[in-house]
């Protein structure tokens, strides 16, 4: 009997010692989370993203070697795996994974025809249907066409700051305008459905103005740029979720060929 008690005590002591020595490496988890952030985890898996953030916040205040920390780590790992899965998932079954759709400025919840995307990427001079999400460079248009297809850039909520990834598009627009002096451009700013009409009208105009200022900075004459703020109307898609609202928060270019 005594032997049994001693043996079980020793086993327990050994087990708890081993358990206590397991150090929770937050930096590794943080690194993995950062990598997923770069792959648009917030857009593709917002709920899990929020949960991981709250767990991480709690983990940082916990004692690094406590059992609770280990339990939290396991939960975070599970959530990160889920996020990874969502990033690579294809919700709308159009063959493009979620993160890729975000990078292309598409909506991962609405199917996009792959051919159209390919055309947009190759920038072939092809008239595209006024579909929901394609981004085209203005040089794809024939000089005889008054531009039918708008070039689109999107904005963060309540912001008129131009996102870095759209700067190359604007550079192409500026280059086009500089090489085509007979062309004028009209920039229309739009918003999502959130907030008052008055505020959104202002914000829409501010977005158009921001794009105008950027083009002027690149050497386009201000006389050739007209701006308009549309605000809470002319949505491309419904405003049901964050991605749809992101799609609607945009500035579009309408190029007017004066030769026509």
């Amino acid at each position: 009997m005594r032997k049994n008690i001693i043996a079980s005590t020793l086993i327990l002591a050994f087990a708890s010692n081993v358990f206590a020595n397991q150090n929770v490496d937050i930096s590794k988890i943080q690194e993995r989370f950062d990598k997923l952030k770069e792959k648009h985890a917030l857009e593709c898996s917002p709920e899990e993203y929020g949960m991981v953030e709250s767990y991480l916040e709690s983990l940082k205040t916990e004692n690094n070697q406590s059992v609770d920390s280990l339990r939290l780590t396991v939960k975070i790992e599970d959530l990160l795996t889920k996020i990874e899965k969502n990033i690579n998932s294809d919700k709308d079954k159009d063959g493009i994974p979620c993160y890729k759709e975000i990078e292309l400025g598409l909506n991962p919840n609405i199917p996009d025809v792959i051919e159209k995307v390919k055309v947009a990427q190759n920038k072939e001079p092809e008239k595209l249907d006024t579909g929901v999400k394609e981004k085209e460079a203005p040089k794809t248009y024939k000089s005889t066409d008054a531009i039918i297809q708008p070039v689109r850039i999107h904005f963060y909520s309540n912001s008129s700051k131009i996102k870095k990834e759209y700067l190359p598009y604007l550079n192409v627009v500026a280059k086009y305008l500089k090489t085509h002096p007979d062309v004028k451009v009209k920039i229309k700013g739009y918003t999502d459905n959130i907030g008052s009409k008055k505020y959104n009208d202002k914000l829409a105009l501010k977005r158009a103005e921001a794009v105008k200022q950027y083009l002027i900075k690149l050497g386009v004459s201000p006389n050739r740029i007209m701006i308009d703020g549309v605000g809470k109307s002319e949505y491309i898609v419904s405003n049901n979720n964050e991605l749809d609202r992101f799609t609607n928060r945009r500035a579009e270019f309408y190029i007017i060929n004066l030769a026509e």
Binding site: L42, P46, E47, E48, Y49, G50, M51, V52, E53, S54, Y55, S58, D68, R71, L72, N240, N241, E242
Partner: peptide, 25 residues
């Protein structure tokens, strides 16, 4: 909120789970 504010909802859910766990400890 799961559709319109999923990030905020996720954070609330995460903290709630932590609260429950801490309470059980």
């Amino acid at each position: 909120a799961t559709l319109k504010a999923p990030y905020e909802y996720g954070k609330a859910k995460g903290f709630y789970k932590i609260a429950v766990e801490e309470s059980s400890n």
